[in-house]
Computed example of a mutant assay.
Amino acid sequence: MKKYLILIALIIAVPIDAKQNTQSTAQIKQKIIQQSIAAYPGNCACPYQAASNGSRCGKRSAYSRKGGYAPICYAEDVTPEMIRQYKARYGGS
């Protein structure tokens, strides 16, 4: 009986740990994106941001232009190496 309870506890705990790990990675990706946007000197780092006149930046954004600044705007742009460096620098939080 004890074995079954332990097995059930492990089955329940594993998906919870995986979900927490995914959320942690997603949060780190968001922080990396926020830091990248904050480091850009203008107000059109990413296509989804608003220009000073209130219009969407779109293709005028630094992200959409070749050369110069290359801000990180989307979670897909964040590499595993960036996450590793972030965790090393900030302790994973």
Rank of each mutant, 00 (worst) to 15 (best):
I12D: 05
N21F: 12
Y69R: 03
Y48R: 02
P15K: 14
N43M: 06
Q85P: 04
M1W: 12
S52C: 06
Y63R: 06
S64D: 05
Y63T: 01
S36D: 03
Q30V: 06
I16Q: 04
A51S: 11
A13F: 11
R84Q: 14
K2G: 15
A45V: 03
I72Q: 01
G54S: 09
V78E: 01
K3Q: 15
Y4C: 03
N21K: 13
Q30P: 05
Q85Y: 02
I83H: 04
V14R: 07
T25C: 05
C57Q: 00
K31R: 15
R60K: 14
G92V: 05
I32D: 01
N43I: 08
M82D: 06
N43C: 05
Y40Q: 07
A50G: 04
P41S: 08
Y4H: 09
G42A: 05
N21W: 09
N21M: 10
S93C: 08
K59S: 14
Q35H: 13
I72V: 15
Q35R: 11
S55K: 12
P41D: 08
A45T: 04
P71F: 00
Q30D: 15
S55D: 11
P41H: 09
Y4P: 03
R89E: 15
Q35K: 09
L5P: 04
G68I: 01
G58V: 02
T22E: 14
R89N: 14
N43T: 12
P15G: 09
S93G: 10
Y4V: 03
S36E: 01
Q85F: 03
S64K: 11
L5S: 11
S24R: 08
A13H: 08
A75K: 15
A26C: 06
T25N: 12
E76W: 13
K29N: 09
R65F: 02
P71R: 03
I83G: 01
C57N: 02
E76A: 14
T25K: 05
K87P: 00
S55Y: 00
A39T: 04
A75W: 10
Y69K: 05
R84Y: 10
Y86A: 04
Q23D: 15
Q23T: 06
M1C: 13
K87F: 07
A9T: 13
S36R: 02
A50H: 06
P15T: 10
G58N: 08
G68V: 05
Q27G: 14
L10W: 09
D77E: 13
T79C: 11
M1H: 14
R60M: 06
